[in-house]
Design a protein around this nucleic acid. Sequence first.
RNA 1: CGGGGUGUAGCGCAGCUUGGUAGCGCGUUUGACUGGGGGUCAAAAGGUCGUGGGUUCAAAUCCCGCCACCCCGACCA
Length: 639
Amino acid sequence: MAQSKHTAISSKRRGTVQRWTATLIPTTREAPAEAVAPSHVLLSRAGFIRPVGGATAGGAGVYDYLPMAWRVLRKVSDIIRQEMDAAGASELLLPALEPVELFAGTKRDLDYGDLLFKVTDRHGRVAALAPTHEEVITELLRGAINSYTQFPLNLYQIQTKFRDEARPRAGLLRCREFIMKDAYSFHLAVEGPGGLSEAYDAMYRAYVNSFTRCGLDFTVVEAESGPIGGSASHEFMVNCESGEDTILRCPASGYAANVEKCEIGERPAPSRGYFGGEPTGALEEVHTPNCPGIEDVSRLMKVKPENMLKTIVFRVEGGSALRTDTAGGSIRSADLPEWVVAVVRGDHEVNEGKVKGLAGASVKMADPAEAKAKGFSIGFVSPRAAVGKKGVLLLVDRDAAAGFDDAKGKPRFWATGGDRPDYHVKHFNWHRDLGVDPGAGVSDTSIIVGDVRNALAGDPSPRAAGAALVTARGIEVGHIFKLGSKYSDAMGFSVLDKEQKKQPVIMGCYGIGVSRTMAACVEMSHDADGIIWPATIAPFHVLIVLMKPDEASHRAAADRLAADLADAGADVLIDDRDERPGVKFKDADLVGIPVRLTIGDRALAEGGVEFKARRDKGKGEVVRLDGAAARCVDSLNAG
RNA sequence: CGGGGUGUAGCGCAGCUUGGUAGCGCGUUUGACUGGGGGUCAAAAGGUCGUGGGUUCAAAUCCCGCCACCCCGACCA
């Protein structure tokens, strides 16, 4: 259903009026020393959050949400609820405490490892504090759904999640306890009416609507896709230089993706073809003790990282052949390599997802001991190590496969590993030194040249010829994902379809970090004086500052204004504290309520009050008392 | 998990080198003056110095262990 325009306030809902002295807003002049991120500093100073148990207690990443924060969280949640409901989802609430056996059923107790909080009850039974609810809801539906006619179904909840993060940081941005909206959809098919893609697209739109209504500046990026393939996952990133995630964007086509996913457009092949070029000198071995890392070696050998070949050894994970042809037949496991050796330039990073794609198999970084047993001198491996071993696939990134430097018009100089501990070599030449002709797949060694590395700013766009990718920083606040039948298969959740054939249930999952959204908003929208809330999620819409709270006429004016504003749908906070004006104005800027009305002798003498929008500089303007409420509403609804 | 740093009053910090009665600023309380951008004066309350052990006549200070927190990295919705 199409959403009508949502305004920040509307007289359909009566606003609330609250007094500063009757609530808890403990503002401070200084933030705790450990607060570094702007959102952490400002939410602390403005009296929105406090670390549980005090700053140095064992409560890292666990915070009290004080009244101001809770009002914001409720407003964010309400927007999400409206959009989820409009998209056909239903809210429920699942327990945070779940039997650890449920996780063991999908092996996620191992996947999560230490990330999983565990508690033991009086009987010695172990339960997990849920980090997410795929298992719980799949288990629920397995017992509650008995007919395919009940699909599709989309269920969501907003509640506290628990993850024992290795490194909680930046206040609410990465917590061990945080508020999340998670939704799960269930289908019989991926495509078609009632299918997963339909729900996924609806969730995509609901997320765009939600974050837009929250007043956020965000980018939707393609993320690493799941087993279904295609663009099966998107992340919603708040644009913000202090964000911890890097995203890449094509300015011409609008394509955006995270580093794990981002494709690289056509890179021009070297004029002499891959690997072509004369040796730059005799192969020279250099002693490089205790230098397994590119940076150390680079410094010791005085060779720039971009002139080195970095060789990473992957192990193919047992039996999990992903490579299937269109006829549906998998490649026999005997055809799959057991090892994959990926080569990129020293200043580039290997992209594991791209390695998987090219290898056609699930891989993971090789265990050093196991790799050494196979003859890889981990830390000192060169592309040569892939040659002469059975079951080894060599993947070479396009930039690493150059033998001739077209820009400089001379053969490419390469340094790489010496294939024995503590040695590297200079003047590596692909044709001369690899051990086989890299131009043709020979004997046991197969070689693929392709895109194996992470994309970088300046790389060609995969969607627009001639355009270059640019990087930006962001904070991930939402993630939607096509799960497929991973959980339903693992937990035996299937139904009979119309033809009475057993069908695995297809699932999607959709998350929004609610508490992180609040923090991301502050990261994105603040100045040197404090927070600047968008009207739609501000804790209050209007702050009435009483210069003389014990002056009866001033109080009466404030009360009348507040009543008018509440009638119009605005939430009003009256600063009735007996404080110096400076303190009140500083706090007003700090807490960031979008509109401030100041009641004092100065404006009252002119029969008015002083109006000031938080986002505007200066001292504000005097408006007539009887027009002040309307002025506030106009300003708030203008965005 | 690796590297670096820090734990002293609600918050921010000094004191530790060279052991000897616990300090400063902000905040809080009381009173007075003040009253449009964190004001002034006077008085007051508030601390097992992260924790356990050791050395010593004596430990915030020196030694050893542990814990917690922050930053960078690894990892990761």
